[in-house]
């Protein structure tokens, strides 16, 4: 056993050696710009990006065309909230979120409040859960977005996202879910959960830092976003900037591995390990 022992996997994770192996040729051999249309270096890079996009789509049950690459979940959360607030300004000016969201959602919401958006921050109960009925009650005819996380980064609780998605659909309001801690660890299905926008990132699931994604629904409804980054019109105009090809390749591989091992890993972590820690440390956890 090597010391120190890393047991802070909600902060970040070690990159899986299989991911590293797949990334490396994209620095020195297939180093092309995925937007270069006139030569094989560009075509190779583009092919790798599209293969990555497919792997990301699979882990959340989406269409590859619905994946927008970003620099990480903080950017994805910013793009979702600010992009919707600006694009749907005529439809309304009210956002619903909750108290234990990640700072990148709460601080973005606070920033939006300064520009006239009204934000409802719902409370959680003693166990850290949001009551979907509270979400329903908070909806007004000016509500344009509900943003509720899947898994909390500190206490690990899983919010009733599917029920909230259903309410959002009934009322025709867009639903954003910050699934940064959940993807690759628990089942995520944007169809069943009624999610229109979903943030996630590679470094929480044994992939590299600096690459994230935002799922943006294309059908029922087609979600439109005002971009925050202007430029070459990459990523369907929603996020300009040369694509991080090695990062995307690594993110894709990380998703593929996570899908393969998810059930087995969940059983392992919930089983002996968790019981030993819980039972050993606190004999009578109240």
């Amino acid at each position: 056993m090597n010391l120190p022992i890393y047991m802070d996997n909600h902060s970040t994770t070690r990159v899986d050696p299989r991911v590293v192996e797949e990334i490396l040729p994209y620095f020195t051999v297939h180093f092309g710009n995925a937007a270069s249309r006139n030569h094989s270096f560009g075509w190779d890079a583009d092919k790798a990006v599209e293969a990555g996009r497919e792997r990301l789509a699979r882990i959340i049950h989406a269409d590859p065309r619905e994946i927008i690459f970003t620099s990480g979940a903080t950017e994805s959360n910013n793009l979702a909230l600010k992009g919707v607030a600006e694009m749907y300004a005529e439809k309304g000016d009210h956002i619903i979120t909750q108290a234990t969201e990640h700072r990148s959602v709460l601080d973005t919401a606070k920033r939006l409040e300064k520009s006239g958006i009204r934000v409802t921050y719902l409370p959680v109960d003693r166990e850290g859960l949001v009551d979907p009925e509270e979400v329903r009650k908070a909806i007004t005819d000016r509500t344009i977005l509900i943003s509720i996380m899947l898994v909390n980064n500190e206490i690990g609780v899983i919010q009733p996202v599917e029920e909230i998605g259903k309410i959002a659909k009934e009322r025709g309001i867009l639903f954003h879910c910050d699934a940064t801690q959940g993807v690759g660890k628990v089942r995520v299905d944007v169809q069943e959960m009624g999610i229109d926008l979903l943030s996630f990132t590679a470094h929480k699931l044994y992939g590299p830092k600096g690459i994230g994604a935002l799922y943006v629904r294309r059908k029922n409804p087609r979600v439109r976003l005002a971009p925050m980054m202007d430029g070459g019109g990459h990523e369907r105009g929603m996020r300009s900037g040369t694509l991080n090809v090695p990062g995307i390749v690594g993110f894709g591989k990380a998703c593929e591995i996570a899908m393969e091992v998810m059930d087995e890993e969940a059983a392992r972590l919930q089983g002996k390990a968790a019981q030993r820690a819980r039972g050993g440390i606190g004999g009578c956890l109240s």
């Binding site: 996997n9 206490i155 690990g156 899983i158 890993e265």
Partner: peptide
Amino acid sequence: GHPVKRMPGN
């Protein structure tokens, strides 16, 4: 946090 509705590993 909730005793059951939680992510494995946390």
